[in-house]
Design a protein around this nucleic acid. Sequence first.
DNA 1: GGAAATTCCCGTCAACCGGG
DNA 2: CCCGGTTGACGGGAATTTCC
Length: 298
Amino acid sequence: MDNNSSNNLLQSSFESQEDTDNEKRAALQREQLSRRPSYRKILDELASESGTGTADTKPDKLNLVASLNNSQNTQVSQPAVITINNSTNLVPPHQQQILAGPQTSNVGGLFHTPVIVTSDVMSVLASTLTNSSNTSGVQPTVVALPQHFFQGSNSDQLSQPAATIMSFNNSQADLQNLSATQVLSNVIQAPRTALITTPYYNIHRPPNNQVVMTQGIPGGNHQTPQQLADEASKKREIRLMKNREAARHCRVKKKEYLKCLEERVQILEGQNKKLIDELKALKEFYTQHKKDYPEHNI
DNA sequence: GGAAATTCCCGTCAACCGGG
DNA sequence: CCCGGTTGACGGGAATTTCC
């Protein structure tokens, strides 16, 4: 064997080692690529290599909702029926304090702070409702709690979720006779999906610091059409926002995937070139060998 | 320089799929 | 079965390139 041939063999030996590495790498990439159509794996792997999980890039549901809520906080709800200024002292200051706790929620841009109307201001409220109902043709439903309700009650009880809707068909006298527990059970045990068959009012406290009563629809659920529409549009906004984020995410992954494919093409092209060169060298070696050693020919 | 064509990016919709 | 995530398809607008 001449020097040239041994050098070639030595080089081939190194190259074959390099090729093995390349093949391993290529095999790894093939494996990755065979996991299509989802790009999740690649992105996850890339993310883990760079030390940041995909969790970082996932939209935070809470933040999403929070940001949406924040964006809607500036919208002041339109009172559907009655607006009563705080100056009418519907709720004494100390009771407002009780009610202005964590139970305040913002749904569809409305601040659903439960407002309890005490018996000593019921006449004011009743007359307001009556006057209003004369034009709307709906008999007023008075929302009221007797004074003794507040004695011994605590804010935890009041923070029950369904307290944003209060539906009563009781007369003032009936209400005066209700115990605190009975009233509470009327208020807080009404399921959110319950059908309300009597006229009722939703009571909100929007940011303009007015007590706003919106008339509900008997026979429907406890939400007004406006509220339903708001909720639907809010849901849609959230869905669109999430999908927007998801599409962005998906495109990033797709780009990474394409980059990976391009790298793989380069690797394969390199391998192909090496194989062609190797084949050429072997052919030359074989031809030369045939010339040098004709007696070996069969 | 400006119109037309092409490319890129983004948002949305709809279909599909997996998990609960 | 419903819900939420994923992704291909589509359309619109902005940016870039090409052509006259």
